[in-house]
Computed example of a mutant assay.
Amino acid sequence: MGAPALAYGDAALSAFELDFLERGRRRRQPLGQGWTTQFEAVEPVRDFRWAKGVESFAGWYYCATARDHVGYESWLERDHLILMDRDPQVVGISSQPFWLHWHNGTRRRRHAPDYFVRLADGRGRVVDVRADDRVDDAASESFEAMELACRAVGWEFVRAGAPDPVFMANVRWLARYRRRRCLRWAIAARLLEAFEEPAPLLEGVLAAGDRLVVLPVLFHLMWSGVLAADLRGELLHDHSMVWKERGR
């Protein structure tokens, strides 16, 4: 390990390799060389599998942040994809961005994380999604290796489990209105006035106009964080208190 460590300044930068697709070409490079790649824009390194009778369910989610479809391999992965899409600090997301290769002292291992996220401040974040009760020894080793590799290049590493069910149900609902086409500026202005101080959801909607026209705008503003409500306490309903976020 001595010579590679001198080459990159950290043994981990040579002990790990990144295997990824860039503009349709397969590349495999030491971590110390490949980590500057824009992984938020790469193609998935493996296919998403649809199989009859299995518990997981793969699919494609239209990501408003990436303005493109991003893949997922389970409902839990999709939920976290939705949460990342709503996070204002996230500016780019890709799924299955690379294989991380390493040797654990006994055999060669590889692991493809679920997501690579680019943050607004330029930092990278690697996300692996796995419920707590599904983390076995092999997964633990993969996550530990991934965390070590991320630390070596200044990326964050997150192992994401199951989110709060009430909060997630509310955010899933708001995600239906994530696209910019739901935003109508004149109606948005009336809603911001109606919820300048906290008010019941339906009361503010009716003050802004026809509910069928206003509700999509309301939910888009809530998705965007311009308007807020207690998404963790209970499912959204007509009497949920809604308010304008200060500074927005």
Results as ranks from 00 to 15, higher is better:
9 G>N: 08
9 G>M: 10
9 G>P: 07
9 G>Y: 09
9 G>C: 09
10 D>A: 14
11 A>N: 10
12 A>D: 14
14 S>G: 15
18 L>H: 02
19 D>S: 15
24 G>V: 12
24 G>A: 11
25 R>G: 00
25 R>N: 07
26 R>M: 00
27 R>T: 04
36 T>G: 09
40 E>D: 15
44 P>F: 12
45 V>D: 05
45 V>L: 04
47 D>G: 14
50 W>G: 00
50 W>M: 05
53 G>K: 05
54 V>I: 08
54 V>C: 05
55 E>G: 02
55 E>Q: 11
57 F>H: 12
57 F>E: 11
58 A>W: 03
58 A>L: 01
60 W>M: 14
63 C>I: 05
63 C>R: 02
64 A>W: 08
67 R>Y: 01
70 V>Y: 01
73 E>A: 15
73 E>Q: 12
76 L>R: 01
77 E>W: 05
77 E>H: 09
79 D>A: 13
80 H>G: 05
83 L>D: 08
85 D>S: 04
90 V>K: 03
90 V>Y: 04
92 G>L: 08
92 G>S: 12
92 G>R: 06
93 I>L: 10
96 Q>Y: 09
99 W>M: 01
102 W>R: 11
102 W>P: 10
103 H>G: 04
105 G>W: 14
105 G>Q: 11
106 T>A: 13
107 R>Q: 14
107 R>Y: 01
107 R>D: 06
108 R>T: 13
110 R>P: 02
111 H>D: 12
117 V>R: 00
121 D>M: 07
121 D>N: 12
121 D>P: 09
122 G>H: 12
122 G>N: 14
123 R>A: 09
123 R>M: 05
125 R>D: 06
125 R>K: 15
126 V>I: 15
127 V>L: 09
127 V>G: 03
127 V>K: 02
130 R>E: 07
133 D>R: 13
133 D>I: 09
133 D>S: 13
134 R>D: 05
135 V>F: 03
135 V>L: 12
137 D>P: 01
139 A>G: 06
141 E>K: 13
143 F>C: 07
143 F>N: 08
144 E>I: 07
144 E>R: 15
145 A>F: 08
145 A>T: 10
148 L>P: 00
148 L>W: 00
149 A>M: 04
150 C>I: 08
151 R>C: 06
152 A>F: 02
154 G>R: 10
156 E>N: 06
158 V>A: 10
160 A>Q: 11
163 P>R: 00
164 D>Q: 14
165 P>I: 06
167 F>T: 04
168 M>D: 03
172 R>T: 03
175 A>S: 15
175 A>C: 12
176 R>F: 01
177 Y>G: 05
179 R>M: 02
180 R>P: 08
185 W>F: 07
187 I>N: 06
188 A>W: 05
189 A>T: 05
190 R>Q: 14
192 L>A: 10
192 L>R: 14
193 E>V: 15
198 P>T: 13
200 P>I: 11
202 L>D: 10
203 E>D: 14
204 G>K: 09
205 V>M: 08
207 A>Q: 13
208 A>K: 11
210 D>A: 13
212 L>T: 07
214 V>T: 10
214 V>Y: 12
216 P>F: 04
220 H>D: 06
221 L>Q: 01
221 L>P: 00
221 L>W: 09
227 L>G: 07
228 A>W: 12
230 D>I: 11
233 G>D: 12
233 G>L: 05
234 E>A: 15
237 H>R: 15
237 H>K: 14
238 D>E: 15
241 M>P: 01
243 W>R: 12
244 K>G: 00
246 R>A: 11
247 G>Y: 06
